[in-house]
Computed example of a mutant assay.
Amino acid sequence: MAQRITTLFLLIEILFLVNYVSQIATTAADNDADVIHVAGKVMCQDCTLNYQNWINGSEPIKDAVVSITCMDERERVRYYGSDKTDERGQFDLIVNKVLYGGKSLKAHLCIVRLVSSPDQSCDIPTNFGHGQSGVKLVQPFMVFKDLVKFVVGPFYYTTPMCETPKVENNY
């Protein structure tokens, strides 16, 4: 019984510590760094493959476009930018937090999403990793000195053959 109570207190302390560190990282992301740094990857998944190959067989997409849209508290667009992926399907968005006129962006009001794929055989956006609907920058991946980095995704496109048909009037 005493061991269970000790384990329970240890779990409570760990949860408190994780929550505290999370709050510090989020506060640092909003206040300390001069830039919002977002990295991720864009891949192609082919739904016609068997499950094992579908899960492990995704290929990077070069020159796919990913965007970041930052709003203000009144839900007005304050910044829009984009980046293309490299040959490994990786992108690296770097946004200055201070805009012209001294206005400051807040990372938690920014959304990163898929824009386009240059690969016509794999250009249907999916919502795996929330690439189609967008990912809010809530929790930084790394906070170190003047660097606050968010990592999103991976985001996925799929082949036209895998596109789900649009249903109209429930037919």
Rank of each mutant, 00 (worst) to 15 (best):
V143W: 12
V115W: 02
G102V: 08
F91L: 05
K62R: 13
L17S: 11
I94E: 02
R113V: 00
S133Q: 12
T48V: 02
R4A: 15
V143N: 09
L147D: 11
Q52I: 14
D92A: 10
Y171W: 05
Y157W: 12
C47P: 04
I12T: 14
Q3V: 13
F9W: 04
L15A: 14
T7M: 05
L11A: 13
P140D: 12
L109T: 05
P160E: 06
G134E: 03
F128N: 05
N56M: 07
P154R: 10
A33N: 05
Y171Q: 10
A29P: 09
N56K: 08
G129E: 01
E59H: 05
G101K: 08
D119V: 10
I124C: 02
S133F: 04
R78C: 10
D32H: 15
S82R: 11
M71L: 11
K103F: 09
G102M: 06
M1K: 07
A107P: 05
V35L: 02
L11K: 11
Y171N: 10
V151I: 11
E168Y: 15
Q139H: 09
T27P: 01
H37P: 04
R76P: 01
H108D: 09
Y20R: 13
G81N: 03
Q52A: 09
F9S: 06
P60R: 03
K166Y: 11
N96V: 06
G40F: 06
N31H: 14
V148Q: 04
C44W: 00
S82M: 15
L99V: 09
D92V: 07
Y20P: 01
V42Y: 00
D146M: 04
N31F: 10
G129K: 03
T69C: 08
A107M: 04
E75I: 07
S82P: 00
M43D: 07
Y100F: 13
K62A: 07
V138S: 13
S67P: 00
Y51M: 12
D83L: 00
A29D: 07
S116F: 02
L105Q: 05
A2P: 03
H130M: 08
I61E: 00
T26N: 11
Q3M: 13
Q45R: 15
V167S: 01
T85V: 06
Y51I: 15
G81K: 04
G102S: 06
D92R: 08
G131N: 09
V152Y: 00
L137W: 07
V143F: 10
A29M: 09
S22W: 06
L10N: 15
D123K: 08
